[in-house]
Computed example of a mutant assay.
Amino acid sequence: MLFLAGDIGGTNGHVALMRAADDRPGHIETLAYRVYPCAAFPSLAELIRTFIDSEVRAPVSHCVLACAGQVMGDEVANDNLAWPILPAALRATLGLADVAILNDFEALGYAIDGPLAESGRHLCGPQLRGVGPSLVVGPGTGLGAAIYVPHATGGTVLTTEAGQMDFAPHSVRERDVLAWLAPEGGYVPVELIVSGPGLLTAYEALCALDGVMPALATPKAVTAAAAEESDSRAVEAVALFCAALGSFTGNLAMSYLPTGGIFLAGGFLSSIFDLLKQSAFEERFLHGRSVRAMLAQVPVWVTEHGSHGVQGAARWYMHHREATRTAFAEGAVA
């Protein structure tokens, strides 16, 4: 069985042609894989059509897409995608029989027992995973999180919109940044700080608070300047970002007790790994909590996002199809 699998984020769209082996249950082979900048396409249908025209040589009628946001009826509710995602319109435009949608971090959760867990760089905590739930967190264009709960038949992933939680400042400087973001008070989501665009926002806020004009215009420029120590506010912005990420991750860890480990996913974090390692992330992950001793036993790794979202989406899709087939067969027998 051939099918398409995609991981569609706010910046890039990862698309693959997959093949499920009938004689090897659970085995999925990647036949082609491409990454496209979302901004280069007027619609998701055009992005997928480009992949089909370039890489697909046989008829394909099934597709699974991991997308930033949550499925609400026949559309995906999101704040960070380049265009609206409407499964029915995709089916009609591309001539597909089936377009299944799941959250992008739900897909990453399903990849935890695959190569995702094997490819990370250790950040803090023990070197080995314990038994129990695992957490995947990722700041990119937005901020996502999901929890993987293992069980005898594989595992279940609980999706979240944790990035939309309120930002909770820890230091006086963070309180000043929050006041700059919302001078009249009100809701400020944590992803407004803990994300790629959020890093730039933090830098701009620090410049404004210090009465200087921002010299940097992209998150990549901020991280480069921080690594070179050529801009003091870039250094402070990355430090603030890393510390806030530590607090956010610690809060989620207290909610789910992920003794199976935490995976911080995304190329953005991998690119600043050394800065993250030297930052207050670990102290803020642990600091001042009555469960500090427990959190100290939770391992944390940083892993490249890469094709893991596509692989997780494919694993979810095959499990979903098998569960549907089994339920249908049991219903027919009954």
Rank of each mutant, 00 (worst) to 15 (best):
F3C: 02
A5K: 01
G6T: 02
D7K: 06
L17Q: 09
L17K: 04
L17M: 04
A21I: 09
R24F: 07
L31S: 07
A32S: 07
A39S: 13
A40H: 10
L44R: 03
A45G: 11
I48G: 06
F51A: 00
F51V: 04
F51R: 03
D53I: 00
P59T: 10
C63F: 08
A68M: 07
Q70P: 08
D74E: 14
L81Y: 04
A82T: 05
A82E: 02
L86P: 03
A89P: 07
R91K: 10
T93Y: 08
G95C: 04
N103D: 02
L108E: 01
A117I: 05
Q127R: 11
L135C: 00
T141P: 07
A146C: 01
V149Y: 08
P150S: 00
P150W: 12
H151A: 06
T153E: 15
G155P: 07
T156E: 14
D166W: 09
H170F: 14
H170T: 14
S171E: 00
V172P: 08
R175N: 08
D176R: 15
A179P: 04
P183K: 02
G185H: 05
G186A: 02
Y187Q: 10
L192H: 03
P197G: 12
L199K: 07
T201G: 01
A202S: 15
L206Q: 01
L206N: 02
D210L: 09
A226T: 06
D231H: 05
S232T: 14
A237H: 11
A237T: 12
A243I: 05
L245I: 05
G260Y: 07
G260R: 08
I262P: 04
L264G: 01
S270T: 14
F273L: 13
L276W: 11
F285L: 09
V291Q: 15
L295Q: 05
G306R: 08
H308R: 02
G309V: 00
Q311D: 10
A313Y: 06
H320T: 09
R321G: 09
E322I: 06
T326K: 13
G331D: 11
G331E: 12
